[in-house]
């Protein structure tokens, strides 16, 4: 389970010399709330906990969190994909490596090849029944599958015309070339989306934070502030749910949805400020923000990360190569 964890790796001594005042930690928390809202998605399944009620929350777990050498109990084996052996920051880097060439080129062959390879990789790293995995990937891709034709449409209508023209009306001119741009953009949207799904789905926020701080050496203050903020969001989501129920109980559940939303939003703001400052105080009381810090969970790079980088580069490389060989390759500069 913890094949890639090496407990002998030196933990990084954080050189955060600056003292953290409470104002600072509040700022970090607030900033992290914003970050959190942007990055949440998966975490938004919530717990109605403020009312003391617990609601389901599927928390993905991988084995790399706790060193086995510590001899601590873990709650059984949770089957995870092989990607879980890869450090989250490597996965983040992988997403960037996959997207950059896709942003810089515009032809349908490279994008379609990349999509095909991505599907292959997904099936390769996710153990279990194939059809179920295909379904999972398809379900998660729905937003991109919807966005892709919409993105393509504008290029089909307004793209730089060349070759045979099929239809023209005012500014609209659908030509051979504009159609090929459209296909290229649509395939790109799907390829980028799938790259994000494959590299970043099921990333555990705690492990990502560990990686960012220990491997990429981002400031601990910022990383952990963000992490705490992300957790706070699930608490606030639970507050929101409870407050909705309370409005129904108070006879306000039938009409005036907009006004109800406004009072809910205000109440949530009050709650967020209160919870945020309590959390900042609690973190500070536990010594957060001052001096050197150790890390209970080692975050390291290993062979899995190397393989991951190789596969990522290969996917992109093969995509570009195929389009070069088939003569479809085109820089984005040629289009604009």
């Amino acid at each position: 389970m913890t094949a890639s964890v090496e407990s002998n790796v030196n933990c990084r001594k954080n050189s955060g010399t600056r003292e953290l005042t409470r104002g600072d930690s509040r700022t970090v928390l607030l900033a992290s709330l914003v970050n959190g809202f942007l990055s949440l998605g998966r975490t938004s399944k919530l717990a109605l906990r403020s009312a003391g009620v617990t609601v389901p929350m599927s928390v993905p777990m991988s084995g790399r969190t706790v060193p086995m050498s510590a001899g601590v109990p873990m709650s059984g084996n949770v089957p995870v994909s092989r990607v879980a052996w890869v450090n989250p920051v490597t996965r983040l880097a992988g997403a960037l490596i996959l997207s950059l060439p896709l942003f810089l080129t515009l032809d349908w062959v490279s994008a379609v090849t990349v999509v095909g390879l991505e599907i292959g990789v997904w099936l390769g790293v996710h153990p279990g029944e194939r059809w179920r995995q295909v379904r999972r990937l398809a379900l998660r891709s729905i937003p991109f599958l919807i966005a892709a034709p919409l993105a393509g449409l504008s290029l089909a209508l307004y793209g730089k015309p060349a070759g045979q023209t099929f239809f023209a009306w005012g500014l609209i001119e659908i030509s051979e070339q504009s159609l090929s741009y459209a296909a290229a953009v649509a395939a790109r949207v799907v390829a980028l989306g799938m790259a994000a799904i494959i590299t970043l789905s099921d990333v555990d926020p705690t492990e990502m934070a560990d990686g960012l701080a220990q491997v990429w050496r981002l400031p601990a203050r910022f990383v952990l502030g963000t992490l705490a903020g992300v957790r706070l969001i699930s608490v606030l989501t639970a507050d929101w749910k409870t407050m909705e129920l309370a409005r129904r109980a108070r006879g306000l559940g039938d009409h005036r949805a907009i006004r109800r939303f406004a009072t809910l939003a205000f109440a949530l703001l009050v709650s967020a400020i209160r919870r945020g400052s309590t959390l900042a105080t609690a973190m500070e009381a536990r010594g957060f923000g001052e001096g050197e810090r150790t890390w209970a969970r080692p975050s390291t790079l290993g062979r899995a990360d190397l393989i991951y980088y190789l596969v990522t580069v290969m996917v992109v490389g093969v995509g570009l190569l195929v389009s070069l060989i088939t003569g479809h390759f085109r820089w984005i500069g040629d289009v604009l």
């Binding site: 928390v59 555990d204 705690t206 609690a282």
Partner: peptide, 9 residues
């Protein structure tokens, strides 16, 4: 206590 819990595990 809910507001004092920092991490997810």
């Amino acid at each position: 206590p809910q507001a004092q819990i920092v991490l997810a595990r």
